[in-house]
Design a protein around this nucleic acid. Structure first.
Length: 912
DNA sequence: AACGTCCCGTAC
DNA sequence: GACGTACGGGACGTTA
């Protein structure tokens, strides 16, 4: 087998150089393409002339890398690229694909680090490397089979050229750069020392450490330069960490996949043709080809980097059971700069669980399990593990990657380990990219993106009565399962993280979703106090009243039956008693829901009314009073819900175990449940809720002047709607009219249909249709918004909130009209519901800083979609309410004001 | 006995 | 078929 020869093109470096070196040129549609042209020329030449066997173009992935953690100043003052260059970034990536060359980038690392890592890997495999670049930052890699080629001047750069230009060897370039600094990248270096001075010092003392030692010890004779070295010794050391390249980054794509492959003539032809690069087409002999498609609508082809998944096997994995193994892994994590972490626990509830083991992964296939609390098997002492892991968790230069970080952070905190920072969360990355398209659990994403089905939790622990705690699972079995989860998390991160930029979801993810994690964590920890005795008393009372009602009902029916069985009830109402007007559910059973029973009651029947009464008590007793009592934490007498952040297709949170987002409020009996949610002694609850936030968003996104004016003038919006639609004056409006308008407003938000509105209002379809028509006539922009939104959803498969969140709507192109109609209503609703979710999330992320700045002792306890509930000492409650209102109202700037109403009370009901 | 589905009802 | 988003309890039928 002949020797491998890998050519690595510094794509990002080339773009900038070509842009400045070449005269401006544009393609027919005006898009500037001079750097793209230079790039295509360069690739053509490379492919024709060089003798390599493998080729890849490497790009910078983003603005922030691990270097920002070392020194926030790094590249901080680098200006935005010129406007003419910006569209060319994507085009250059597209060009790379058109040439069938892998384009590789990795978030968190610069192109230079990937080049260094690929060069290192190739050297290890005994091959040669040519780096196509002229950047001095890459010169430290030269020698031992690695050479450099200046793509503009077509000259070779080797150790001799480095020595000629900088007076040091390639290996010494790192120390030289640390001394020189770099004004473009904002690497500090040592003031007053440039290339010449650096070379002199290195040639005299050998290394940076020796130079700094000589300066501080007095071996160096006193001079301005020595003073500068002493003063800036730390800067020099930081600079060295900034300029030294990482040569062990996990390769996003194995070297074998970089083998040069023939391109598709038609694809390349179409691309070059679209750019108007006739000369390159001619040189490649492509000008005879006809275009495949006359008009390929302007390619919104978000340049998808060819970051392939690794083909490293999933296991076997190592069990860390010796101090030496642990130290080896810690060293690996530090060298890699990131680590995927997964915790194994006794229970699936994050707040009730205890840590049993930790798995770690630093590269695809490179993962291990660290058992801590298994009932059998060799395990390292916890104190030792804590001492080694804590610095990793808090190291700002090491990114911790989790899948559902909130869970692991709960567990780690309970084990007295520090909060992990910085961190990434693959579940939230997936959610930010594709909410509504599919679930975001690890197993589902693994099958979807990695084509690999991981061992399931149930397989390891068993299910049902056979289920055992994870601590009882043998360590070897636990390793196979747990390490695989860390491995999968790491691979998902490598696959998904780069996609955030393409989907324009990076800011959404970093600030809203990831930023929300610590806030939710604190809320779940805080919990809320409930009056246990009150709930128990209510439960007893409800039981008594249900018994009474049951006796009445059995009297009416003439025999006993299960009141909780809709099936039995339907048979009695429509079979035995032969009541008229019954409807069937979709499975053919008699419908007995509240609307149906209400109708029967109004027709004068006694039984349905009693059933409705019984059902209300049954609901309050079982779902609320009894269930809540079982959820009270014995330690602090509070209930702690858990928020799910990656479930709702619109961006909303959901709440479970227990669900505190559906506590009753509307009926007087229901409000009694809410009254059992109380402030801690000496404290008050503060409720702050957005007024009409979804209608305000509608006025904003659909740009409805009449609606916007109503909000700007702070009118009663439902009364105004009634006045406009029914032509009645606002003053002295009767309640029923306003209620109808309110239902229409809600209907609009839900993607109105005449059928739905008719059902809601108990009117016929024709009348409902007349209402809707009147509404559209008065607010014509609504119809346009609905049509535009449907259209957008059809072409993209998703809709977008005003804050850039994509909500996917599967079924939007379904040929079944019912399913399509459903998807269309989702599409109309999602930007409004999702936009409201975005706004409150932004407020939540900003609140901790605002609270800290206020000096108040207030905590966020709950979120209920458009409401936040806080707790504060009684005397601070008014100030706390003011802080809450201010942050919430300022969370977004729309073309209508945001209004937040706040209340204070000893319990949740009174706080409204 | 455990699980999935249906029906129903609570919230925003 | 049936105006949007969730969670969960009880009944009931199916699996083990």
């Amino acid at each position: 087998m002949s020797k491998k020869n890998l050519v690595l093109v510094d794509g990002s470096g080339f773009i900038f150089r070509a842009f400045h070196a070449l005269p401006p040129m544009t393609r027919p549609d005006g898009t500037p393409v001079n750097a793209v042209f230079g790039f295509c020329n360069m690739l053509t030449r490379l492919l024709k002339e060089h003798t390599g066997t493998h080729l890849a173009v490497i790009f910078d992935a983003g603005r922030t890398t691990f270097r920002n953690a070392i020194d926030p100043r790094y590249k901080a003052q680098r200006p935005e690229p010129p406007a003419e260059l910006i569209p060319q970034f994507a085009l250059v990536r597209e060009a790379t694909r058109a040439f069938a060359v892998p384009a590789i980038e990795l978030d968190g690392f610069e192109a230079d680090d990937l080049i260094a890592s690929y060069a290192e890997a190739m050297k290890a495999a005994g091959g040669e490397v040519i780096i196509v670049s002229s950047d001095k930052d890459l010169m430290q890699l030269l020698g031992n089979g690695v050479s450099m080629l200046d793509p503009i001047k077509s000259t070779a750069i080797g150790p001799a050229q480095v020595m000629e230009k900088f007076g040091v060897t390639p290996a010494q370039m790192i120390d030289a750069q640390a001394l020189m600094g770099d004004s473009v990248d904002n690497v500090p270096g040592v003031a007053g020392i440039g290339p010449k001075g650096a070379a002199q010092l290195i040639n005299e003392y050998g290394t940076l450490d020796a130079i700094l030692a000589a300066a501080s010890s007095g071996t160096m004779k006193p001079s301005k330069r020595r003073d500068a070295l002493i003063a800036h010794a730390e800067d020099a050391r930081i600079s060295r960490r900034l300029v030294e390249l990482r040569c062990n980054v996990a390769l996003p794509c194995p070297i074998d996949d970089l083998a040069i492959a023939p391109h598709d003539d038609a694809v390349l032809h179409d691309f070059l043709d679209a750019q108007g690069f006739k000369s390159i087409k001619a040189r490649l002999g492509l000008d005879g080809l006809a275009r495949r498609h006359e008009e390929r609508s302007a390619p919104p082809v978000a340049a998808v980097p060819v970051v392939t998944t690794s083909d490293a096997p999933f296991g076997p994995y190592e069990t860390i059971d010796t101090e030496a193994a642990l130290d080896r892994w810690i060293a690996d994590i530090i060298a890699t700069g990131f680590v995927a972490i997964d915790t194994e626990t006794t229970d699936l509830n994050a707040r009730r669980t205890r840590l049993v083991g930790i798995s770690l992964a630093t590269a695809p296939g490179r993962a291990a399990y660290l058992p801590l609390g298994h009932e059998a098997g060799e395990q390292l002492p916890r104190a030792l593990v804590h001492a080694r892991l804590a610095p990793i968790l808090t190291d700002p230069a090491i990114l911790k990657i989790f899948h559902n970080a909130k869970f692991d952070l709960h567990v780690l905190a309970a084990a007295a380990l520090p909060d992990a920072a910085p961190f990434d969360d693959t579940m939230l990355i997936s959610y930010a990219l594709e909410a509504g398209a599919h679930g975001h659990g690890m197993d589902e994403l693994s099958v979807l993106h990695l084509d690999h089905k991981p061992i399931s939790y149930d397989e390891v622990t068993g299910t049902g009565r056979n289920r055992v705690s994870f601590s009882a699972v043998p360590v070897d079995r636990a390793t196979a399962y747990a390490a695989e989860d860390a491995d999968v998390t790491l691979r998902l991160w490598q696959w998904l993280r780069p996609r955030l930029r393409e989907a324009k979801a990076l800011t959404l993810y970093e600030t809203m979703e990831r930023g929300l994690v610590p806030v939710l964590l604190a809320m779940e920890r805080a919990g809320i106090m409930v009056d246990r005795d009150d709930l128990v008393a209510m439960s007893d009372e409800f039981a008594r009243r249900m018994d009474e009602i049951q006796r009445d009902i059995e009297q009416l029916v003439g025999h006993a039956f299960n009141l909780g069985s809709p099936k039995q009830l339907g048979e009695i109402l429509f079979g035995e008693m032969k009541l008229q007007g019954g409807k069937r559910t979709k499975t053919g059973a008699w419908g007995t829901d509240a609307a149906a029973l209400e109708e029967l009651a109004e027709a004068g029947h006694e039984l349905p009314r009693r059933i409705l009464d019984w059902r209300q008590l049954q609901k309050l007793k079982s779902t609320y009073a009894d269930a809540l009592v079982t959820e009270i934490d014995i330690e602090d007498r509070r209930v702690h819900t858990s928020y799910a952040q990656a479930i709702a297709a619109t961006g909303r949170l959901s709440s479970n175990d227990p669900n505190l987002q559906n506590i009753p409020i509307r009926t007087s009996e229901g409000a009694r449940i809410r009254r059992a949610f109380i402030a801690a002694p000496g404290h008050a609850l503060i409720s702050a809720d957005y007024s009409q936030i979804e209608l305000r968003l509608l006025a904003h996104v659909a740009d409805i002047p009449a609606l916007k004016a109503s909000f700007i003038n702070n009118e009663d919006i439902h009364a105004r709607t009634a006045s406009e639609v029914f032509g009645v004056p606002m003053e002295g409006m009767d309640g029923a009219t306003r209620r109808r308008a309110k239902a229409i407003n809600f209907g609009i938000i839900y993607g109105i249909s005449a059928f739905g509105l008719a059902r809601q209002l108990g009117i016929d379809n024709g009348e409902a249709k007349r209402y809707i028509d009147a509404y559209f006539a008065r607010y014509p922009e609504i119809r346009r918004y609905m049509n535009d939104t449907r259209e957008f959803a059809r072409t993209h498969g998703y809709v977008v909130t005003p804050f850039g969140r994509r909500c996917h709507v599967p079924g939007i192109a379904d040929k079944n009209p019912a399913r399509r109609g459903y998807a269309e209503r989702q599409a109309i609703n999602a930007p409004l519901q999702g936009g409201a979710a975005d706004i409150i999330k932004r407020a939540m992320v900003r609140l901790p800083d605002a609270i800290a700045a206020s000096g108040l002792d207030m905590r966020i306890l709950l979120q209920v979609h458009d409401e936040l509930l806080f707790e504060a000492p009684i005397d601070q409650a008014p100030a706390a309410a003011a802080v809450a209102r201010e942050v919430m109202q300022q969370a977004a700037v729309l073309s209508v004001p945001l209004l937040v109403e706040a209340g204070i009370g000893a319990n949740w009901s009174d706080a409204h």
